[in-house]
Structure formats: C-alpha cells, structure tokens
Amino acid sequence: MTAPPLPLTVREVVGETAEASTIVLDDERGGLAEPVPGQFNMLYPFAVGEAAISLSAFDAGRLTHTVRAVGPVSEALRRLEPGAQVGVRGPFGRGWPMRRARGRDVVLVAGGIGLAPLRPAIHAVLAEREAFGRVLILYGARSPADRLFIAELESWDARDDVDLAVTVDYADGGWRGRVGFVTALLPHIRFDPDHTIAMMCGPEAMMRAVASKLTARGVPASDVHLSMERNMKCAVGTCGHCQFGPLFVCKDGPVFTYAEIEQLLAVREI
C-alpha cells in the first residue's frame, strides 16, 4: 500500500505553449520525500483522476510539473488556478544517473514535452557545472511556438559553458533558428564517447533514432539513458499497467539504459 494522496496547494500556473502548462505546487511542510531528477509524481485533480507527471523542477518546498493536455486528467491539471488543491503521491521511480555523470561529458537530448523531465537534470548539472565535462543540450520542438521554457533556453544559450542547439520541425518565415529533426543536430556536436553520459526524453521513435546514432559514435549503450513513458496507475509496480516486458516503467524506470531496453524497444507487442 502506498500513502494516500497528499493535498498540496497550487502556487502558480504558467502557460508554456498552446497545449502545455507548468504547475508549481507548495510543499513547504515537506510532506513528500525529496525527489531526484527524473522522478515523477502521481497528480490527482480531485474528482477527475490521477496521472503520472514528471517533475520539471524542484527546490525547497516547491514541486514543479509541466503537463501537456492529452486527456481529462492533464486537461484538468492545466485548468487549475492558484490556491486550488491537488492530490500528490510520490516521488516515484528511478531517476537520471546524476552521480555517474560526474566528470563526464553530458549529452541531453529532448523532444517536445520531453524537455520537462530532463530539466531537473540540467538544473543539477548547472548547479555544479565544474563537476562535469562538456554539457550539450539538444532540443527539438514541433514549431517555434511549441518550445517550452523559452526564457530558460535563452539563459542556457547565453552561457559559455553550455552548448545548446534548438531545432524545430517546421517554421514560418520569421524564425531565425534551425529547422530539421533533432537527430540532425547530432553530427555537429563534439564529445568524448568513452567519457559521456547521454540522457534523453521524447517520443520513442525519436529516442530510438538518437540512441542508435549515439551508440554508432561510440557511446556505450550502458551510458545512454532514456526516460520511458507508459500508462502508469499504481506507480509502485503492482498493478501492471506500465509493464514493459519483464520491467515496470513506474518502478524499474522511468529512466532505463539503452542496454537494458534496446531489445524490448524492437518488440512491437510491448
């Protein structure tokens, strides 16, 4: 049995795109355990339902989630207003390999809403920037208007110690940045494949393509990490909703190494 949802108060809701919003929750009493980058919470807009939502940031007393409206629960979360209450269980799951990344080049690849689960890892790296090698952030979005965290992207881009590349699938005439799929950014980045940790989150087809290209460049599959998404219910590996072959995404993941799941990704039935 897990603990019942803890009611937390919505402090702030920020519209990111036409479909995605960032929700900041107060947990000043510390009712939940301290999360690690890559973990998720189960958010419960009362009387609607519960959904697994990755943390997109956290600090003392504040838990931040970025959600894209894809169904009734995520739509209800987006409609929350400051002062409202939402039930929270968590944090759950295995997060990004932050300790293992120390001293290495770090390649972070995000697609679409996948930047949200990677953001706490980026925050952790930048908080101790000297502890890591090269930091390369690659982000692909559908269009310029679909980019998340635009002000933060600009702040990362302004840093001399971060290589940020953003690309969009399509753009109209006013966009001055790159256009093309996120995999097109990979040939242009430099890293030491023997001393690199890669972390990625996005649609599975995107992650398969990126992981394949990174391993082709010599990064061991055990150093390539993917955050998987499945329909999660219990979040503790008992209900089986998120079963992924012999694994449960909620309990064994959501972060896996490519070495762990490469063969499973090729099995369409799971």
């Binding site: 894809v70 697609g111 559908r142 799929f181 995999t183 649609p203 087809a205 393509a209």
Partner: peptide
C-alpha cells in the same frame, strides 16, 4: 539517406498530440 530518414521522422509529427 540521413535527410530522408530525418524528413520521415518530421513527417510523423512525433511531438504532436497523438504521440
């Protein structure tokens, strides 16, 4: 070939609602 593969991934609109 690389550009064709990238164009196909773009055409799939992976970041859209249905992904």
């Amino acid at each position: 070939v690389a550009r064709l593969q990238e164009a196909r991934l773009q055409a799939l609109d992976l970041y859209g609602r249905a992904s």
